[in-house]
């Protein structure tokens, strides 16, 4: 029996307030929570607004280390059981703010982490950016991205001629896949290179002893 709730961390790169990216992120989180609740899994959802870390992210790119709030955010993500990552599509790809966050993660930080990807844009013509941009980024980091990514354009949110039911269905399908993966893939703890020492005998075989 696990005693701690399953931790779902939401990373959202929307910059306006209210932000449609945040709205999509919240809906994905809520749908995930419903699935896990139904399965009897206790859930804690934590939301990281990258806008609040914008300066810290650029500073980290320049100095090589995160300030305290950014360090906390990184630890939230690397310690999560599942990640919901949502970005506005800017100039045919994820926003620079979104990418900056993944640029400052260590290469092995989210290996094996279940991830649900989502994106927003003014028009549905950018929807493949999910599969052409977000999915390869997370595959490189060896995260486990669920098959359904959710793209929401203005029409999905109820603009004239839009179809909100279609978005709701995609959210449900993605949340089902994500919740199933999270439930069945308990994460292995991240190793700490300053605690779990690679001994000198391994560094220079045949020499130490």
């Amino acid at each position: 029996m696990r005693t701690e709730p399953t931790r779902i961390v939401v990373v959202t790169a929307g910059v306006s307030n209210p932000s449609s990216t945040r709205v999509l992120a919240d809906e994905l989180a809520a749908a995930t929570r419903r699935r896990l609740d139904a399965a009897g899994v206790a859930v804690a959802v934590e939301v990281i607004e990258l806008r609040e870390l914008a300066h810290a992210l650029v500073d980290n790119l320049l100095t090589g280390f995160p300030n305290a709030p950014l360090k906390r955010a990184i630890e939230q993500v690397t310690g999560a059981d599942g990640l919901i990552a949502v970005t506005p599509i800017c100039t045919a790809s994820y926003s620079a703010l979104f990418k900056a966050f993944f640029d400052v993660l260590d290469a092995g930080a989210i290996v094996g982490l279940p991830v649900l990807i989502g994106a927003t844009g003014g028009t549905e013509r950018h929807s493949l950016a999910l599969d052409h941009a977000l999915r390869p980024l997370l595959s490189y980091l060896r995260a486990l991205v669920v098959p359904t990514g959710v793209y929401a354009a203005s029409t999905d949110f109820g603009a004239r001629g839009g179809d909100t039911a279609g978005l709701a269905r995609r959210i449900d399908r993605a949340a089902e896949e994500f919740a199933t993966l999270v439930r069945n893939l308990p994460r292995t703890p991240v190793t700490d290179p300053y605690q779990d020492v690679v001994s000198f005998a391994e560094l220079l075989p045949g020499r130490a002893g």
Binding site: V198, S199, F200, A208
Partner: peptide, 10 residues
């Protein structure tokens, strides 16, 4: 690099 700390210690 933890490896360099290990080397110094060795």
């Amino acid at each position: 690099s933890p490896e360099i700390a290990e080397q110094a210690a060795y």
